[in-house]
Design a protein around this nucleic acid. Structure first.
Lengths: 204, 204
DNA sequence: ACGCAAAGTTGCACTCAGTGCAAGTTTGCT
DNA sequence: AGCAAACTTGCACTGAGTGCAACTTTGCGT
């Protein structure tokens, strides 16, 4: 078994704390919530809260939308000869699938983060961890030292920006279509060198 | 005059607090420094500290390497017809000049931020503010609504990534040449669609 | 079923960040 | 000199986060 009761209860408590934190923060704003309130809503002591999360904001932002290590695995699975941007594109599309599955949670947290920029800070910390790992993998694949050549970091930054930006727009428009399609379009633009796009459906 | 004595003393106090914070944080780490110690080193009361900075980390990270509003002005000055990426490139090169002037301060803060990732978080918050403003300007210039079309945010993210990444590499290598040259090269890569680069100085 | 050890929870006491308020002090202006 | 605005400061307070030492629960061997 997977440690059974003990492990399951821990997972439950963690989830209870995290969702209580999210719910309360939606109602009262991040500063209107105290750790004491979160702990009470989850049925544990305030002290126990800190056994699960190292800060209040961690609990509100919760688990990262896409686990850093997963995207790294996606990237590592790509064939060695593939151009870096193509590998990143493929890994990103894989992420899109996972994101779409948890879209509702994502939307709630996303709105909260947009309303309270102080939370954005916590969230980007997650991106930074992922970014560092991806940069090293791209460095390995291209034979470039990321500390001496900007290319790996540039490519990864473009990919992460695509996720960040496209997901935000996709939310704003209430998920008009498959997230993967929108991401693919963004990668097309990046691969084309980000040329000025046609303004809109204007001419007539 | 520019408000004379009063304004000057405020600027002095702010600088004294910021540099005391930086110096102490270098020695003891961000968590080893208290606001009380910073205030004492700067010769003011702890309460006064918070009249100048809204958090301890703000004082340590100090003023943003490139004032957000300045880069926005650089961008706004570019001719209207110019392709967005070209405008961003020009604005970025202008930033490079200002950055190079304060290179020493930058290096100190950069090392600190690298050693203590918790500070990175504060620093990116500064980038986020700038990013938002630039995105709106690019949206204006292209006639695209940033909330509906990812292009403006993608282009701006690429530009900011270029600054972030190139400056980091430039520091790591002890400023091998003009920062502007390295940035221009990065923009060349972006405009070319980030193709896989040749591994090194290989061909014969 | 019993008891032991490991893991988890909790209360307590503490440090420190950060805020609001109500003084006091300094500066600029007339 | 005298007034008003700006700035500083002390005080009291809330709340985050940590270390520690009990206490309770769970898992496991006998």
């Amino acid at each position: 078994m997977t440690e059974g009761l003990r492990e399951r209860k821990k997972a439950e408590t963690r989830l209870a704390l995290s969702s209580a934190a999210l719910r309360l923060a939606e109602q009262l704003g991040p500063d209107g919530v105290t750790v004491e309130a979160i702990a009470e809503a989850a049925g544990v002591s305030p002290r126990t809260f800190f056994n699960y999360f190292s800060s209040k904001d961690d609990a509100i932002v919760g688990i990262n939308p896409s686990d850093p290590s997963q995207m790294l695995e996606d990237l590592a699975r790509r064939p060695a000869g593939e151009p870096p941007l193509a590998s990143l594109r493929a890994a990103t599309l894989a992420v899109a699938g996972r994101l779409e599955a948890h879209a509702d949670d994502l939307v709630a947290r996303d709105h909260l983060v947009q309303r309270y920029p102080s939370l954005a800070v916590r969230r980007t910390a997650g991106y930074a961890v992922m970014e560092q790992a991806l940069v090293e993998e791209i460095g390995r694949r291209t034979g470039l030292d990321p500390a001496r050549d900007p290319y790996p970091a540039l490519a990864v930054a473009a990919a992460i920006a695509a996720i960040r930006v496209v997901v935000a727009v996709w939310h704003d428009q209430d998920r008009p279509g498959p997230l993967a399609d929108a991401l693919a379009a963004a990668f097309d633009q990046i691969a084309a060198g980000l040329p000025a796009p046609v303004p809109a459906l204007s001419p007539g």
